[in-house]
Every structure is written in C-alpha cells, then in structure tokens.
Design a protein around this nucleic acid. Sequence first.
DNA 1: AAGCATTGCATAGCAATGCCATGTATTGTC
DNA 2: GACAATACATGGCATTGCTATGCAATGCTT
Lengths: 220, 220
Amino acid sequence: MYCQPVPRTADPDVRLRLVERAAAMLAARETVTLRSLVEGTGASTMAVYTHFGGMPGLWRAVRQEGFTRLHERLARVPRTADPVHDVAALAVAYAANALDSPALYRAMFDAVADLEDPAGADRGLALLVAAAARARDEGRLAPAADPSAVATRLWVAGHGLLSLVVQGVLPADVVPAHSVETAVALLTAAGDDPGACRASVARAWALGSGADTGSVGTGE
Amino acid sequence: MYCQPVPRTADPDVRLRLVERAAAMLAARETVTLRSLVEGTGASTMAVYTHFGGMPGLWRAVRQEGFTRLHERLARVPRTADPVHDVAALAVAYAANALDSPALYRAMFDAVADLEDPAGADRGLALLVAAAARARDEGRLAPAADPSAVATRLWVAGHGLLSLVVQGVLPADVVPAHSVETAVALLTAAGDDPGACRASVARAWALGSGADTGSVGTGE
DNA sequence: AAGCATTGCATAGCAATGCCATGTATTGTC
DNA sequence: GACAATACATGGCATTGCTATGCAATGCTT
C-alpha cells in the first residue's frame, strides 16, 4: 500500500485520529484490524506501536475514550430541584450513551479492568453518587441510606440491562419501562416515597426521549 | 505435530471432548486457539470443522454447554415451602455457577445472541419465572405482579453484577450483600412484605454459602 | 463377499493478523 | 551546523483461522 508523503509537521495528533477512527469503525460495524485501522489515516502500522504499544494498547485507549464521552454526557445532565429526578436523568443519559454507540459500549466493558486511567471511569459513577447523596440530604432517601451503595446498585442494574440490549438479547424498547421499574424499586427501598419516586423517575424518562441529552429508543 | 494413529472406532464423541476441553482451557485461563485446542485430544484441526464448521461454531457450542450446565445447576435447587426463598435460592445458584467458572460465564455472554438452541438459554430463566409465579399465587407478591417481568428484572440485575465481578471491576465478596439488597428491593416492589422478604432472601444466601448448590465467595 | 459411496479426519499449504527489527527522515538543542 | 532523539515507513516473521486434497474406515448394495 502506498502512503502519500504527508509532511511531518501536518500531524495534529495521530493518537486522537487513530482512537477516533477505531471508534468510528466500531460504530460502522467494521472489524478493526491493525491494517484496516491505519488505512486512510496516512499512517503506517508502526504508528500504533509508537503511540499505544500495540493493539491491546489501542483498545485500552478506545475504552478510555468511551468512558470520557460517557462522563461528558453525564456531566451535561442539568441539576434540577428534584434530586430523585436527577438520579433518574443520569440513568437516562447513561442509557442513551450506550444505545447511541452500542459497539463502543461493548468494547468499553470488554476488558474494563484494563484502563489507562481507571479513575476516569469512576468519575461517571461519582456523579450518580453525588445525586444520590443529595437525594438523601434533602430528605428523599432515608438518613441511613448509603449513597454509594444505592448508586452502585443502580449502575449495576443499568449495566446488566444495557449490556443485554446491546448484544441483542433484549429489545431496546424495554429499556425505559424496565429502567423505571428497577429504579423505583431500588430508590423506594432506599427510603423514598413510592408515589413521589415513581413520579420523579417517570418524568426523567419521559423528558429523556427527545431531549438534548439524547433520545433513548433510537438505538441500534 | 504427530498424532498417534488412534483406531477409528475408539472415538466416543469428538464433539463432546472438544467442547469440554475448550471449557477446561477457559477455566485454566489458557488462550483457546484452533491448534492449542486439538493438541492432546489426538484429533487434528479438521475435526473442529467437520463438527462445528469452524471456530465460531465451536464457541457457539461452548456457550450452549455453559447454558446447559447453568440450567442443570438451577434445576438442582430444591423447592421449599417459601417461594420467595426459592427465588433467591435460584439467584444464589446462578451466582455460584458464574463464580465457579467465570471465564465460561464471560464466554457465554460474549455473543449470547448466537446459540445453537436459543430456547435452551431461556429454560433457566423459565425456572425463575415459575418461582416468581408461585410466589404471586401463594400471596407473597401482588396479584397484579407479572412473574415474567419480576424474574427478568432479577436476572438482568444479577447479570449486571456478575459480569462486572467476573471482569474484576467489583470484588466477589460484594455479591451476597448486593444481591440481597437488590432482590429485596425488587421483590418488595412487587408486593412482598419488606420484613418477610428480607428474611427469605437472606436465608437463601446464608444457606447458599457452603451448601451443595455450590458456595458463593470462592470465585476466581 | 466384493464393490462402492459416504463419512471422518490427517496433511499441507494459504491469506490475514499482530508484531517487530531495521533503516530513515524530521525535529529540537547546543 | 553537528548530534541526539523522536516518529514513522518498509519489509519480514510467527501465528491464527481456514480449506483443498487425499486417504482410511464404515456401511450399504448387489
């Protein structure tokens, strides 16, 4: 294969280009191989080795990019006067992110224990923990409720649902109803009033479909 | 590589041998390649193609075997007078199965939509649905509760937890506590009495650690 | 019982993959 | 302006999944 002699200085950031191209190929359902990845970028296969040390390193960077995008999306969720609504809104954004790029979501959790910056993946969860803590502090959850535990349960349940949807086991249209029921169960168990809880959670999902946080249900 | 001229008749079942060897290699954390798989079985690489059509077919058979073993384990869970306890006992067996062979569990859900017999994977869930239906019929859950929906929520949450544990994101020792809290929340939301529900679920997990259904907590 | 098609597999070789040794061009520094 | 360091292109290597070919054993047919 011939690579045009692109000037050295015109090299904004090969790392970024390669990671984004890998993510784009994932989204396009193309198989990402070393050679198919560099094809079209004007780079040779060695670029992958100088920047990532090999294909495992590239995948690590791709997963990191996935968690970065997830965090950015979660951070865009506005804070309202209803903390339980905000907890659910974070779940909506999480689901929308996964359904918008299911292949990337799969790749993220393919070897999620192997990341460049493991703390980066925790930052998203931290937003959920903070929202849960606010719900407790404002009296919606029981004073003894552990925000970290509640957030973890929500995240674990959401991940289970989305990983199964992303793999085609469950259809995408079950996500809202399933999420609402599970979230209401977990948050009610944490002390919230059942009726108020359902209202808050349902409102987040109703708003989520079509809002700028990304619509849920247009996945795959 | 030399393969001893084993007599043709002495061929109990190459399919079974290959699938079991693949599962054993997964458990031993060895990478399963076409050649490393057949090595030691006295078979050549062609056996994989005559029986499975290729490596994807082998993996399909391995996943099927995983779901078969899971179903056998779930079917061994005895039925007691407490249907909510039985629901939780199925969850205990499910978790024990996953933690006993984490690599197989990962492989099962690696492409779970691609199975020889998709209905085989549903048979395990059917046991959980039946237990939930009994809990409703015996008055533990609300009459309007949908056993299928309740079972699915339990399974989805359990899968989320176990897939994260199996990948090293969460430690295995959080499984019992997390499972109890989530199951109590979901079953209480379905209508069970909070106190009775917690007692039933906690008893199942207390018995599960060390019973012949397989101990939970000795994973990896 | 002899011929013959079928089945199951061993051998060997192919294309593609990830990886790396080597050489080379560009950049920054003194 | 020489020099070291960096970044990358080239080419080749081992391994992977796969398959074309041939052979041996089995079972059916007559």
